[in-house]
Design a binder for these strands. Structure first.
Lengths: 128, 128
DNA sequence: ACATTTTGTTAGGTTTACCTTACTATGTAT
DNA sequence: ATACATAGTAAGGTAAACCTAACAAAATGT
């Protein structure tokens, strides 16, 4: 099982690669406000788990396994954050912040029910 | 700030004292499946934070500050678990399990909105 | 081309939350 | 009363996730 911290970093690696085609260790350091050595260490652990391929300055690549992992987290994040904003009327910033923490501990079944609930709620609103 | 583990132990101390009038270190050890030395260590940390008064075999007492802390956690736990069962139709066991983890990371504002949401939903159901 | 800045690594340290092994003190049972 | 079991402590260890200081390599600016 992957830790919350590593999951966060992997999610960021994934999102950044999608957005900007590449990512460097320093980007993670800046994004999460952690030291460069801590990023090195984390990337080595992610590589040990075959979630990324890390070759120092040569770049960070995400593996198939890593993409699958990251997508699961991204999906949870999105459903949580949408549920919070659209159903509970939480402001975006706070919804995002809480999604970031809850995505690491919540079960898939609850996420699925949140998604279904939101969908059925929005259908009803369209009819009214 | 208190850690998730310590918050769990404090919550259990509080609930057990309410239920059975007293609690021993060994009870925590059994409930959370952690070693006796780990419990000792945790209780010392809780005592350092003035959340409990710990005098070894003489017993564990919870302070005013500890009760307040524990009640906050219990409240979050209950609102989460009720929201999951009543709104999202999650079964009790899974709702409890997830509440246990989410209660440590979720903001008060979201908890409040969940509570309000559930209350207004139940009102509507009474009318229909 | 050379100096400076940027990026990453090494080495060593801290804290939290666990663990095991071994010891001590307390309670119980006969 | 003594032997045994239970509860707690002491000592020492591990792994994760962070840190700083110092160094090395690479990229950039002039």
């Amino acid at each position: 099982m992957i830790s919350a911290s590593l999951e966060d970093y992997l999610e960021f690696v994934h999102n950044t690669i999608l957005e900007k085609k590449e990512i460097k260790a320093i980007d993670i350091s800046k994004a999460f406000n952690i030291s460069r050595p801590s990023v090195s260490e984390a990337l080595i652990r992610l590589a040990d788990m075959d979630l990324i391929i890390y070759e120092g300055r040569k770049g960070i690549k995400i593996t198939k396994k890593g993409i699958e992992q990251a997508q699961k987290t991204v999906k949870k994040h999105k459903i949580l954050s949408d549920f919070f904003t659209e159903i509970l009327k939480i402001d975006r910033e706070q919804a995002e912040k809480n999604a970031c923490k809850i995505e690491h501990v919540i079960d898939d079944e609850i996420i699925e029910k949140m998604k279904k609930y939101k969908e059925s709620k929005l259908e009803n609103n369209e009819q009214s």
